[in-house]
Amino acid sequence: MIKKSLPVGIDDFKEIIESNCYFVDKSLLINELLSKKSKVTLLSRPRRFGKTLNMSMLNYFFNIEDKDNNKKLFEGLDISNTDKMKYMGEYPVIYISLKEIKVNNWDLCLNKLHLLLQNEYDKYNLTLEKKRENQENAILDLSKFLYEKYKKKVIILIDEYDTPLVTAHSQGYYDEAIFFFRNFLSAALKGNPYLEFSVLTGILRVAKESIFSGLNNLAVSTILDRDFNHFGLTEEEVEELLKYYELEYELEEVKKWYNGYKFGNKLVYNPWSLINFASKNELNPYWVNTSDNTLIKQLLTKNDEKVFEELELVFKGETIWETISENIIFDDLDNINTIWSLMLFSGYLTYEDIRISTITGLKSYSLKIPNQEIKSFFRH
Rank of each mutant, 00 (worst) to 15 (best):
E326H: 08
I275C: 02
I30L: 01
L140A: 08
W321C: 05
P271L: 10
T358V: 09
L204V: 04
V154I: 11
F13D: 09
L42H: 00
I354Q: 14
S44G: 05
D25T: 04
F277N: 08
K151L: 08
I79Q: 01
M55Q: 00
Y121C: 07
S38A: 13
K123R: 13
G317T: 10
L300V: 09
L108N: 12
R226I: 11
E129P: 14
N335F: 06
L247M: 15
S38H: 15
Y249R: 12
E235L: 14
E373L: 06
D68S: 06
L115P: 00
Y150R: 01
E18Q: 15
E15V: 09
F212S: 10
I2P: 13
N259K: 14
N259S: 15
K99T: 05
S35R: 14
Y351Q: 02
T323R: 12
H114T: 10
E246T: 08
Y286G: 02
E120G: 02
F181E: 01
V220F: 08
L142Y: 03
L367Y: 11
K84D: 03
N69C: 04
S325G: 10
L98K: 03
D107A: 08
A138V: 07
T358I: 09
I10Q: 06
L300C: 09
I203H: 01
Y91I: 04
L146F: 07
I94S: 04
K123Q: 06
W321R: 13
S376M: 13
I336M: 11
Y147K: 05
K37D: 12
F263G: 04
L73Q: 03
H169I: 02
L362H: 06
F228G: 05
K112R: 14
L200H: 04
K368M: 12
N111I: 13
K256F: 05
E176D: 14
N125M: 07
E282W: 04
R48M: 09
Y60N: 06
D353N: 15
L362V: 08
E236L: 13
G89P: 00
E246F: 01
Y269D: 12
E248H: 10
L299F: 10
I94G: 02
